[in-house]
Amino acid sequence: MRVVGLAVATLLLTACASQIDAGVTKTAGSPGFWWGLWHGFVFPWAWIGSLFDPDIAVYAVPNRGGWYDFGFFLGITVLGGGSFFGSKSAKGKR
């Protein structure tokens, strides 16, 4: 029952989240799915670089919204290794 209550509370809190209008643009030059995929893939290196150089960002703003976010997520989880490689190494330890 506790897990269900926590899940409902989490869903209610995340339902309130929104992106500001300045963060989403539909212009032709703004990053979309493919740039999000690339940015997700290079995220670990961009994050390290951003610690030393304030001109390096790990996420493009403005972008095209949901498709950029989806590409970014796929880039981090699938191309960048994400949970896939972690699950393979955990199987060998059991």
Rank of each mutant, 00 (worst) to 15 (best):
M1W: 02
R2G: 11
V4I: 15
G5R: 12
G5M: 08
G5Y: 09
G5I: 04
L6W: 07
L6M: 13
A7C: 09
A7V: 14
V8A: 12
A9W: 06
A9L: 14
A9K: 06
L11D: 05
L12D: 10
T14R: 06
T14S: 08
A15I: 09
C16D: 06
C16Y: 11
C16G: 07
A17W: 12
A17I: 14
A17P: 01
A17N: 06
S18W: 04
S18T: 10
S18G: 11
Q19R: 13
Q19D: 05
I20N: 10
D21C: 00
G23H: 05
K26C: 07
K26H: 08
A28M: 09
A28I: 05
A28R: 13
A28F: 13
G29E: 09
G29H: 12
P31S: 08
P31L: 07
G32K: 00
G32R: 06
G32Y: 06
F33E: 04
F33A: 06
W34H: 11
W35A: 13
G36L: 07
G36F: 06
G36R: 00
L37C: 06
L37P: 02
H39D: 15
G40V: 07
V42F: 11
V42E: 04
V42Q: 00
F43D: 07
F43P: 01
W45E: 06
W45H: 03
W45K: 05
A46C: 07
W47N: 14
G49A: 15
F52T: 10
F52Q: 06
I56Q: 10
A57V: 09
V58M: 14
Y59A: 10
A60R: 05
P62R: 04
P62H: 05
N63K: 01
N63F: 04
R64W: 06
G65Q: 08
G65Y: 02
G65I: 05
G65P: 02
G66F: 12
W67V: 11
W67I: 11
Y68H: 01
D69N: 11
G71I: 04
F72R: 05
F73L: 12
F73V: 03
L74N: 06
L74C: 03
L74T: 03
G75A: 02
I76H: 03
I76P: 00
T77H: 11
T77W: 09
L79H: 00
G81F: 10
G82M: 03
G82I: 05
S83E: 09
S83A: 12
S83V: 15
F84W: 13
F84S: 07
F84V: 14
F85W: 13
F85P: 02
F85V: 08
G86S: 09
S87L: 15
K88Q: 13
S89E: 15
S89W: 12
A90Y: 12
K91S: 11
G92M: 10
G92S: 14
G92H: 09
K93T: 09
R94I: 13
R94E: 15
R94W: 07
